[in-house]
């Protein structure tokens, strides 16, 4: 199992310069194996720094990051192998495409891993399928694709390495609602089929509620809240205090509760709300009939 965990990690940009900036302060958090964990936080709360620490693009100023029980910086020369195990999709990854065809661009990662041609070929097709990229697009130039298709190609480029931890920084930002759903659905499928740990950074509370099992909340570089999705969203006053919100439906449920409807206090998806209201209605009817 992947077992990725941060232990007292801090990160300071331009240490020692007049514009030195502390981005993360003493973060300790463990990401549950095989589950999807969301990271939320205000702009500048340290989310992007955190994801770059996870695959060793940045080295923590202090503290340790463990992957499968070993410190990833124990042997700095082997950091590249960590990057194959912890796949990172950066923000707006479509700007990293460079190769002549989508196929060879997706194959860039696996090629760097030194895999055989047959293996690479298989992984490219598989990754394209997870990312929701039609096979007919694979032989086009990446620059002929639409914005959404480019995004999928870039995500497939990381999935093709078959990382045991997949980290995505705002993978659905700027996509239309249907595109959003299919990209996130593909990421979920990737996680389930490969038993991979998925870490998702997003600003959309609705997406978080829908897809993530656990949530980590950062505020000003510090760990603010963490736990099961339902537990985190129950603390909605705390979330509002740091400029975050809760899913729209959670607020609707809270408002209904205030008006006297006996709704549960862990509603954070529309389907959950529907089920809850149906149960209440059924209870009422049962009550009036009796």
């Amino acid at each position: 199992m992947s077992g990725i965990r941060l232990d007292g990690v801090s990160y300071v940009y331009s240490a020692g310069m007049p514009y030195e900036k502390k981005a993360l302060d003493n973060i300790s958090v463990e990401f549950e194996d095989g589950k999807m964990t969301g990271i939320i936080g205000h702009t500048g709360s340290g989310k992007s720094t955190l994801v770059q620490l996870l695959n060793g693009l940045l080295k923590p100023t202090s503290g340790k990051i463990y992957l499968g029980g070993t410190d990833i910086w124990a042997e700095p020369k082997k950091i590249r192998s960590v990057r194959f195990r912890v796949g990172l999709v950066m923000q707006y990854p479509e700007y990293q495409l460079f190769d002549e065809t989508v196929r060879s661009d997706i194959a860039f990662g696996p090629r760097n891993m030194g895999l055989s041609d047959a293996e690479i070929k298989e992984r490219v097709v598989e990754a394209a399928r997870f990312a929701g990229l039609d096979e007919s697009l694979l032989d086009k130039s990446p620059f002929e694709l639409s914005g959404g298709q480019k995004r999928r190609a870039a995500i497939a480029g990381v999935m093709a390495m078959r990382p045991e931890v997949l980290v995505l920084d705002e993978p659905a930002a700027g996509l239309d609602p249907a595109g959003r759903e299919s990209v996130l659905e593909g990421i979920r499928r990737y996680g389930r089929e490969n038993k991979a740990t998925v870490i998702l950074v997003s600003h959309s509370m609705e997406d978080m509620a829908e897809y993530c099992d656990n949530i980590v909340v950062l505020s000003r570089g510090q760990l603010y809240l963490s736990g099961k999705t339902s537990d985190v969203f129950r603390h909605w006053e705390m979330l509002t205090k740091v400029g975050l919100g809760v899913p729209m439906i959670t607020r609707v449920a809270a408002e209904l509760r205030r008006l006297g409807v006996p709704m549960d206090d862990d509603i954070y998806t529309v389907s959950g709300a529907v089920a809850n209201i149906a149960a209440i209605m059924a209870g009422k009817e049962g009550g009036s009939n009796a």
């Binding site: 770059q52 990172l88 950066m90 990854p93 700007y95 990293q96 760097n112 891993m113 990381v158 390495m161």
Partner: peptide, 13 residues
């Protein structure tokens, strides 16, 4: 910097 990081994340050397 961003592009380099993205390619390093895919194992570029």
């Amino acid at each position: 910097d961003k592009i380099m990081n993205a390619q390093k994340a895919r194992g570029a050397d």
